[in-house]
Design a protein around this nucleic acid. Structure first.
Length: 716
DNA sequence: TACTATTTAATTTTT
DNA sequence: TTAAATAGTA
């Protein structure tokens, strides 16, 4: 392979990035500007032209999907296996480091990973054992707190209580949580990163080893990195590695889970003399779509600045539909989809995007009526299904008896006469003795702390696990799984269930297939089972098994990031829904919503439809919203309002134009001042014209409904 | 222990 | 509205 094959398909900016000399590179890659191509070609360039050994490259992504795609594209471009080459997610690579250096990291060699659900269960159990009322501390909040600290790189001992008693308790819970995890040999997702970072920080020999090994470190979606990930990168890069990061500040939509766009700026400060390349030529969308997206995002401040352009056609105008209510909205969308399909388009070429998952329902119903197959993104993944997790819990307990969450999960699944009282005694004993539930169970039996009958049941459970371990020791992984799902009684348990039993049994059998298809690392000294269990957590599988049927794509704006479709519907464009009410109170939140809108628009290749509903049923109540402010940010000349053919069934309703809604000036989240009640925030509004009313939450006077025409509110 | 009634809370998501 | 979690009952 010569230079031309790598360079030929690139434009000038892409070429500049791909062929950059050995110095830090920051690629600001706009939507649809070929960022994956740049990463893949950069790697090809480094290997083929610079002659760098693949072992000396590290490529990091956020999702397994992105990692797999990159791997695939490198293989097809270079026609060369990428086995020895480190491409993976932050979590996957951290996991690899921790497995390789478990001892140095202070972890048992057979440590296991908890997913968020496991983590939440563990926290719930912790709160219960401390007799902390869940109404005082919602387990979710505690979980959020702990993860947020870890994402910032902080251990419980590092967190400042700021003289706040509530915070002090959270920190205390964090500390106890750390102890429980350590005792059970469990590691949560954030812990993978934090622990790996500490490993590199505390062991200079390892740090230097990896720093000199990885000559080049490539990072995808850099705007999504959080504090610990950035720290991780800096440690791995050291002084000698050359970082090559690709990101887009305008597509940063994960600030709420710790992502720091500022890392883009920090990068320019922390790495000397970086080359900054902007990819602004877009190969995806029509000129009209790009103009609209550029105009919307221009309302954000503190951008690094970018303007997408295309040398393609302007294309069709953007269509706007003002629906009467959410059902009318869905009907409109589905009718349009039917038109597109009638004109020869495939169903999978159309995507319906919305802000929150709850919105999918109405679209699903309408698609069902129209007989159009669809696929909803998100939801339960294979390895997250309850029955699959039960089976995995058996396997985890076989691999590690101290795994308390797994013990709790299956001690009485299927029911074997071990009731809540028995488990309670075991829990208390475990706590008093400072040992795992497994050891405590043995003690409870020998010390006769429970009834004879309970003791028999509990002993039978302990024997079962021991037997499963012994019986499967010489088996292959798949045989092992097969044996466990039968001998544990799980299969029979679900067979008895008439309702959902059949699919559960199928899923358990699917787990055997997954084990069969799992290729364990040849070099690893760990049992394949331990590796498989980690794989199951880190790569929890697809939301749905590949459905081969051509179907309309339904998803949230968040999950649409990185995808593209010829036709895109962005729905529910109402203030309060999109931008979401809960992001409306501060400027940063609003800007993130706007970026989300930008992401939505730039998913489309040919045609964008924007819709909003004047009336929307949410949580059983009708809401009368104003059209989203983002609609007003799309230049009028790019928009074409679509009106439905008049229908008899439709109530006669004066549809306020967007401009009129703007004229009222009162929007959700808007701060207002009232002569008598003082200052407050607009929570809700309904009606129009002289009847328009708004609900305002006043700081001093509480929540009130006011008629706009009389209240004379002052906008702030 | 399993089923039923009641309460509660409700962006966005990957690992 | 509705789904999920919890509390109460047979």
């Amino acid at each position: 392979m010569d230079v031309t094959a790598i360079i030929e398909p690139l434009n000038e900016a892409q070429r500049e990035a791909v062929t950059a000399p050995s110095r830090p590179v920051l690629v600001l890659a706009g939507a649809g500007s070929g960022k994956t191509r740049v990463l893949v070609h950069r790697i090809a360039w480094l290997i083929r032209i610079e002659g760098i050994s693949p072992q000396r490259l590290l490529a990091v992504t956020f999702t397994n999907k992105a990692a797999a795609e990159m791997r695939g594209r490198i293989e097809s471009l270079l026609d060369f296996p990428t086995r020895q080459f480190w491409i993976g997610t932050f979590h996957g690579l951290s996991h690899r480091l921790l497995r390789t250096h478990a001892e140095a990291a202070g972890l048992p060699s057979s440590f296991q990973i908890m997913d968020s659900e496991d983590q939440l269960r563990l926290i719930r159990r912790l709160l219960r054992s401390l007799e902390i009322d869940e109404s005082e501390w919602a387990p979710k909040e505690v979980q959020w707190f702990i993860n947020a600290q870890k994402d910032e790189g902080l251990r419980s001992k590092h967190v400042d209580d700021q003289g706040n008693a509530g915070r002090r308790q959270l920190i205390d819970l964090y500390a106890r949580y750390e102890t429980v995890c350590a005792d059970s040999g469990l590691v949560d997702f954030a812990e993978l990163l934090l622990r790996a970072t500490e490993l590199l920080q505390q062991h200079s020999d390892l740090r230097e080893h990896y720093q000199s090994r990885f000559m080049h470190i490539l990072v995808d979606e850099f705007q999504d990195t959080n504090a610990i990930q950035y720290h991780w990168l800096k440690l791995l890069a050291g002084r000698s590695s050359v970082p090559f990061v690709v990101g887009d500040d305008d597509q940063s939509i994960y600030r709420w889970r710790g992502a720091r766009v500022e890392n883009l700026q920090s990068f320019q400060r922390d790495f000397s003399d970086p080359l900054v390349v902007r990819l602004e030529q877009n190969y995806r969308s029509t000129g009209t779509i790009l103009d609209a997206a550029n105009a919307v995002i221009a309302n954000n401040s503190e951008r690094l600045g970018k303007n997408l352009w295309t040398d393609g056609d302007a294309g069709d105008s953007i269509k706007l539909y003002a629906a009467f209510n959410e059902r009318d909205e869905a009907e409109f969308v589905v009718n349009r989809i039917a038109d597109f399909i009638a004109s020869g388009m495939r169903r999978s070429e159309v995507a319906v995007l919305y802000r929150s998952n709850a919105q999918s329902r109405v679209f699903e119903e309408a698609l069902l009526i129209a007989g159009l197959p669809y696929r909803v993104y998100g939801g339960m993944r294979f390895f997250e299904r309850a029955e699959v997790k039960d089976a995995l819990a058996y396997l985890r307990l076989i691999a590690n008896r101290d795994d308390d969450p797994s013990f709790e999960r299956i001690v009485n699944v299927p029911t074997r006469g071990i009731g809540a009282r028995t488990v309670d005694v075991v829990r208390q004993t475990a706590r008093a003795m400072g040992v795992s539930l497994w050891r405590a169970a043995a003690a409870v039996i020998s010390e006769e702390r429970i009834t004879k009958r309970s003791a028999t049941s509990l002993l039978a459970f302990l024997r079962l696990i021991e037997q499963l371990d012994e019986a499967t020791r010489s088996m292959s992984l798949a045989e092992q799984v097969e044996h466990v799902i039968h001998a544990s009684g799980l299969i029979d348990h679900h067979k008895n269930d008439k309702l959902a039993g059949e699919s559960r049994v199928e899923n358990l059998q699917e787990l055997v297939s997954a084990a069969q298809g799992f290729v364990a690392d040849e070099d690893s000294e760990l049992p394949p089972l331990v590796e498989f269990l980690s794989y199951a957590v880190l790569e929890s599988g697809d939301t749905q098994a590949e459905d081969y049927e051509d179907s309309v794509q339904l998803m949230t704006l968040h999950s649409a990031k990185g995808l593209e479709f010829p036709v895109v519907f962005v729905c529910g464009l109402e203030d309060g829904l999109f931008p979401h009410q809960r992001s409306a109170s501060d400027a940063a939140g609003l800007e993130e919503e706007r970026r989300l809108c930008y992401v939505g628009l730039t998913r489309a290749r040919q045609q964008v439809f924007l819709t909003y509903a004047e009336q929307r049923r949410l949580y059983g109540r009708d809401h009368y919203g104003t059209p989203s402010r983002f609609l007003r940010e799309v230049p009028q000349e790019l928009l074409e309002e679509v009106r439905p053919a008049l229908k008899v069934s439709r109530p006669v309703y004066r549809r306020p134009s967007i401009d009129k809604a703007e004229a009222s000036g009162v929007r959700l989240g808007q701060r207002v001042r009232h002569g008598k009640f003082g200052e407050g925030v607009v929570l809700n509004s309904e009606g129009n014209g002289a009847h328009a009313r708004v609900q305002v939450n006043f700081e001093r006077a509480g929540t009130k409904w006011l008629v706009l025409a009389y209240a004379s509110l002052e906008l702030m």
